[in-house]
Design a protein around this nucleic acid. Structure first.
Lengths: 234, 234
DNA sequence: TACAAATGAGAGCATCGCTCTCTTTTGTAG
DNA sequence: CTACAAAAGAGAGCGATGCTCTCATTTGTA
């Protein structure tokens, strides 16, 4: 299945990869909203208008960065779960740690994915949505496996769902072919947002300047509480 | 304590308030990073350089908006808790709903507070930090009252804290004069971040385009789970 | 080798934050 | 009531930004 690539295509791909690399650098050093096509062109040794031969607009470059970042985050999570132990709680904690570690290592790219939507920019539905679901799909997979293995204790509280939520969850269940009960899926969504809430607070500095000397310990505790919310059998 | 205000001061305050109003409008319509001093000046019927008589820089205007937004959010929470019932869980849910309602009504200002830090902008420690603590102080107050009233059941899981976290929590306890045990305070911090995680996911559209027809029901469920994490007695 | 496509250069437009100088308004002190 | 100083606004200008247009050059290939 080796695609035949002409020298032209190869050169184009190299330049494109270089543009992405420089854009990633700028993103990391100056932040998402300060990403400048002119600066990328200058770093590339190219005049600003020439970069439009490769990227249609600044927004398109942002979209490429978003998709790439989602992909890298998904890869980081997959790698962490690659040869992980079977216990659901442990797998959940590994997933959570992988998200946190990636976010701390790449705060600007994390902010691009989970921070304020950049002004005027709307992600084209198709490309980004699929890439963005990898983490939650993995999370749901862990929950699903635990449920099927009987490793989830019965719902401690609030087992019944309101009708609208029940319908939404039912749609998710059919779309992703899930076997878990509705209340578990709904809790999974809540745990999902709570996980990213903890990571965002830490990465975005919401805990304040001097309140936490070691946020990782609070994170570990919170993840254990979230795991308990899912009813994972100890 | 009526300050004597000269006509000059009054005119200045009026203009300043007008600048803030127009800035708030721009923030809402075009997003935080697109906030433009020149556009504010134009809306005000003033040339761009004249606005620098009132605001030293774009960053200073952003700081003013941040402080004002924190203040409004704090007011919204305080109002919701004003004549609230005494049950801790109910008070917690009221606080959570107030945060969510404010965030949905003012997504751009919410993003200014809890989204990606704006590029190059660093909040001056003094002004913003104090304003930013009002919600978590209220949350801790609810927890504290419940604990003192004996309305919190013993820690279901993970009662002991790792040493670093224990030290951080101890510092918080003395600073805010809290009586609650360390594990409860730590859980409060986790619930705090989880609450804002849920709100951010909804406001920033992280749940995806078609996954939730009514996010409020998922929110209600998640808040009940978080309340249970705090051990509030039903 | 000759041609066409791909690529780059350069000028230009409207916008931005911000600084500088100059003019006008405005409150107030004498 | 008038004269003056302080405050406020006007305008030009600097170095940026995203993006478009036209023109020149490079480059693979037929």
């Amino acid at each position: 299945m080796q695609e035949i690539r002409s020298p032209r295509e190869l050169a184009r791909e190299r330049t494109m990869a270089e543009i992405m690399r420089l854009a990633r650098e700028q993103l990391a050093s100056h932040g998402a909203a300060a990403l400048s096509l002119r600066a990328v062109a200058k770093d590339l040794g190219i005049v600003s208008s020439a970069v439009y031969r490769y990227v249609a607009s600044r927004d398109e470059l942002l979209t490429l960065l978003v998709v790439e970042a989602y992909s890298d985050l998904g890869d980081a999570v997959d790698t962490a779960l690659k040869r992980a132990p079977l216990a659901a709680e442990k797998r959940f904690v590994l997933l959570a740690r992988a998200v946190r570690a990636w976010a701390i290592a790449e705060p600007a790219r994390y902010g691009l994915l989970f921070g304020t939507p950049v002004p005027g920019y709307h992600a084209p539905a198709g490309q980004t949505v699929e890439a963005g679901t990898r983490v939650v799909v993995r999370l749901m997979g862990i929950i699903e496996d635990a449920w099927n293995a009987g490793d989830i204790t019965a719902s401690p509280t609030v087992p019944s769902l309101s009708p609208g939520l029940a319908a939404d969850v039912e749609a998710l269940r059919t779309e992703y072919d899930l076997n878990s009960p509705g209340w578990l899926i709904a809790r999974g969504l809540g745990v999902w947002s709570a996980l990213f809430g903890a990571v965002s607070f830490e990465v975005f500095g919401q805990y304040g300047p001097n309140t936490l000397s070691d946020a990782s310990e609070l994170f570990e505790l919170s993840m254990r509480v979230l795991a308990a919310n899912l009813g994972f059998r100890g």
